[in-house]
Design a protein around this nucleic acid. Sequence first.
DNA 1: CAGTGGTCTAGACCACGCG
DNA 2: GCGTGGTCTAGACCACTGT
Lengths: 243, 243
Amino acid sequence: MRARHHDIADDLRRQITTGGIKPGERLPSESGLAAGYKVSTATLRSALSVLQGEGLVEKIHGKGNFVRHRPRQITYVGGWGTLDPWTAAETALRVTDQATQVEADGHLAALLRVPNGSPLTEYLSVSYEGDCPHSLARIYVPGGPEPKEALGNGPSYLHTEASFAVLNALSAEVREIVSARLPTPDEASALRINPGLAILAITRIAADTAGRVLEAALLVFPGDRVEAVFTTHHALNERQTQA
Amino acid sequence: MRARHHDIADDLRRQITTGGIKPGERLPSESGLAAGYKVSTATLRSALSVLQGEGLVEKIHGKGNFVRHRPRQITYVGGWGTLDPWTAAETALRVTDQATQVEADGHLAALLRVPNGSPLTEYLSVSYEGDCPHSLARIYVPGGPEPKEALGNGPSYLHTEASFAVLNALSAEVREIVSARLPTPDEASALRINPGLAILAITRIAADTAGRVLEAALLVFPGDRVEAVFTTHHALNERQTQA
DNA sequence: CAGTGGTCTAGACCACGCG
DNA sequence: GCGTGGTCTAGACCACTGT
């Protein structure tokens, strides 16, 4: 049996993808649509939730349902790569960044291989494409505050471009642990995505030759906008590179 | 304002995680729970949908809501790795496998860098942990059927262990594209997961030194059970290895 | 303030699984 | 047939946004 809300979702999706309703435009109100389709608001809302899950529609409380701009696909490149150069150059990523001192708790202590309670510096950043946030990064470095000349003051544009690259050039090994899950409510609101949209979570550990962890980064990307690429080369005398 | 269904979800989650309701057990019926919490069935169902999204509860139509077994975490290792050895050895992965001949369509043709309509061999496999499926793999190799001695007949146990490793030892480069999304209805039913549970999708391309693509693999893992690890080494004369 | 989405109710009827 | 979840209704009231 075909559920009514699926038919409605299909109809709205067709209107959106064929350009009948354009990106950025507001859909009719939920009560209006419900009346139009002759269904209850609950049914109409479950139709919209399908489209939300597909990232086609963004709901804004008190304003309406809006057709999302088809997000530019961003590529996260594993290892020593950073964001795809074409994309990074094209979109003028803006980053709000802040550094704070924290203590290593259980999980972070294990990641960084430092004792519980060790001092860490946390860099928190959100990157934007236009006015739409598209990634969260929390980067932890063992030890206290960096010298000011390295970090910079105020909104540090220098730090901006490094946000997704490994901070420490001395690192000899980068390990990236990738998982897929739904966002926490905090992450969903920070990224302005629907709680039903999958995210790509990457935990990146950079270590030196002695196995000391130089940096741990917790990265969160919306699944509909970002894919991660890892390239591995086989030959002995060849170091891996990225596209 | 705290939504009632979140409170209920929290309460049920606590009962599950503290062992009040054990894995495999059935929860009281939705109408029973709704009566117990003095809410409507719709509210109670939205509480359950929170737990479904977390993978704690599995709904089975006509039977009830069941607490899921906390899945053993599986690690997919990028590059030349395969599944984490400890896990693979421990859990006796069983695989249903089948090989068919297909033609390269647009997407596959691009991945494999072959003309549209080229012959491909498709290996389709589902791996199980116990009686619970935990991954889907579609592997495409250019060309027609392999010689029988290479592929084997019947339920090929040999092929089983190779399902997540790169098939062709001649490959010089492996590229893995990782994304997070919700499963298609097909994938959700094949993996027996809720449609709201994020999956980790990995497209793996193995090429030889001449850039010829030897194999393309489309892998799908439930996000709550699998994480992928990629390790990159820096030094020039060092080849990368996996943990 | 008016209009929007967010949550919730108290039912109804349908589809599935099992005895 | 009976109990389960799946879908849906026709409202109600609350919370958020903009004027």
